[in-house]
Design a protein around this nucleic acid. Sequence first.
DNA 1: ATTATATCCTGATCGC
DNA 2: TGCGATCAGGATATAA
Length: 278
Amino acid sequence: MPELPEVETVARQLAPVVEGRRARRLVALDPKLAGAARDDLGSRPVRRVFRRGKEVVLELAPRDGGPPTWLAVHLRMTGRLAWAAGRADAAGAAGLRAFLELDRGHVRFVDVRRFGTLTWYPDPAAAPPVGLDPTGPGFTPDALAGLLRGSRQELKCWLLRQDRLVGLGNIYASEILHAARLGPLRAAGSLRPDEVLRLHAATRAILEAAILHCGTTFSDFADAHGESGGFQEFLRVYGREGEPCDGCGEPIRRIVQGQRSTYYCRRCTARSRRRGRS
DNA sequence: ATTATATCCTGATCGC
DNA sequence: TGCGATCAGGATATAA
């Protein structure tokens, strides 16, 4: 479910209600998350909530001059995070996998498919490095060109890699390629400089617009308030197989790359469809 | 090293 | 209505 704009939305909405609250303990209801259970948080304040790649990080104030502690939440496919007043009901609503008990209310982690993860980093320096964030200042056309250089991977699959750029997923990868008029089968390292510029601009533009609209709700994304995102109305190719492209009228195609659907318009990407070499 | 596949889960939906 | 097959926005361990 959640790609960068959805995770950003959750982090932004969670921050004002959770920052400053004191964390008491983390209760894991799902045995898969048992390793993340903590009873000894000692009422440490949540200092800030932010997004790191596709993770939501809750940073707890240091215990005594030491480094702060990070709780990294990865929503994977169906995870949701939301703050709720009052105590978590022991029975647990359907899909409630874990909750972080605060001095007022608690943060609920709901995850139907149980792919999501909770990871504690006693020292943020211990958190593994992530790829370049495409919403940050370091994301420049040159930086993108450098990352692409030499890769023979199909462009669509390359965009899904989190060790190069972080945050893109299956929906935005198709949308970005469509906006950039680049074929998904192109070899990532074969892009000409003007094509890298288009990819860079499209990535920025699509992500900014999606964040502005609080993400995309395709089937069941919900933000920290349990609300739907609004960007799905702006999707131009994803989930639109057979529908006319709103740019040229040609039916949108669906192909499978790496066992995942890719949607694109053949005519709009015609001039950059060949596979190319690096 | 880089790239492709199988696997982790549950629920909704599709075709018969 | 019932039922099996298929699909879903992610990422990783394993294989080639």
